[in-house]
């Protein structure tokens, strides 16, 4: 039997890396390796075409406004169709912070409205209010997640994202601000396409979620082999405690 392999497409690692997105990739890579699951990470830059069948997981981080504008244009020009096709075949697409905004229909930047990929039914507007900054914890309803499916992290965004009718949030805010500071929604999920404002980075603080993504991406029928996660669990508890939530 062929060893399973997780094939990750890291989109725009030179531009969209502002909140230590590298940490998320490091967690996915190591947790595969420790289980003898292969892991290939391919950097996909501006101008590169994507073969939708070549990847199991697409990662999209956040960047500065100008970088994000360039990436948005490139996504539409040469990647959107492939991403939509991959997602419809069950690939995992994870967008964090700016990456979350880019997965929606559009987001505002100054007076401009920038078109997104449209994989998530969300829209992001700018507000005169302050940036939403701080430790955050949310409760998800992901199948098979431990305890209450709590994710903890740090948020730092000026955009306010709203879910359109019928869209499902990734979770409910326990502590922190979430998508817009008022709705109590955080992130958005549609099948295996997930967007969230949680960095910290997200996966080191929530290794259970890294495993959920790995299993979803490689379509693992059996559960993943357990690892010695004592440090990982303590880190998760510390991140929850920083947000003011008991894990």
């Amino acid at each position: 039997m062929l060893e399973p392999t997780l094939r990750i497409a890291a989109l725009y690692p030179d531009q969209l890396n502002i909140y230590a997105d590298r940490g998320n990739i490091a967690v996915l890579e190591n947790r595969c390796r420790w289980r003898s699951i292969g892991c290939e990470v391919t950097a996909i830059g501006i101008g590169d075409q994507i073969d939708p069948g070549r990847f199991d997981l697409f990662y999209l981080g956040g960047g500065q406004d100008e970088d994000q504008r360039r990436c948005a244009a490139d996504l539409l020009e040469c990647k959107r169709d492939a991403l939509v096709e991959a997602a419809s075949n069950g690939a995992v697409v994870l967008g964090i912070c700016g990456g979350f905004q880019l997965l929606g229909h559009w987001y505002e930047l100054g007076d401009e409205r920038i078109e997104g990929v449209g994989l998530l039914d969300v829209e992001t507007v700018r507000s005169d209010g302050p940036r939403l900054i701080g430790n955050v914890a949310i409760e998800t309803a992901l199948a098979g997640s431990p305890a209450r499916g709590v994710l903890a992290g740090f948020e730092n965004h000026g955009g306010r994202t709203r879910l359109l009718d019928g869209a499902t949030p990734l979770g409910r805010v326990l502590k922190g601000r979430g998508n817009d500071g008022v709705s109590g929604d955080e992130g958005c999920r549609s099948g295996n396409v997930i967007g969230t404002y949680l960095h910290g980075p997200l996966l080191p603080a929530n290794c259970w979620f890294a495993d959920w993504l790995i299993a979803a991406a490689i379509g693992s029928e059996t559960s993943l082999a357990p690892l010695d996660d004592s440090l990982e669990l303590a880190a998760h508890q510390a991140a929850c405690a920083a947000a003011g939530v008991n894990a």
Partner: peptide
Amino acid sequence: GRDISWIWD
């Protein structure tokens, strides 16, 4: 800095 993300960079 309240955000400790930077240790991963």
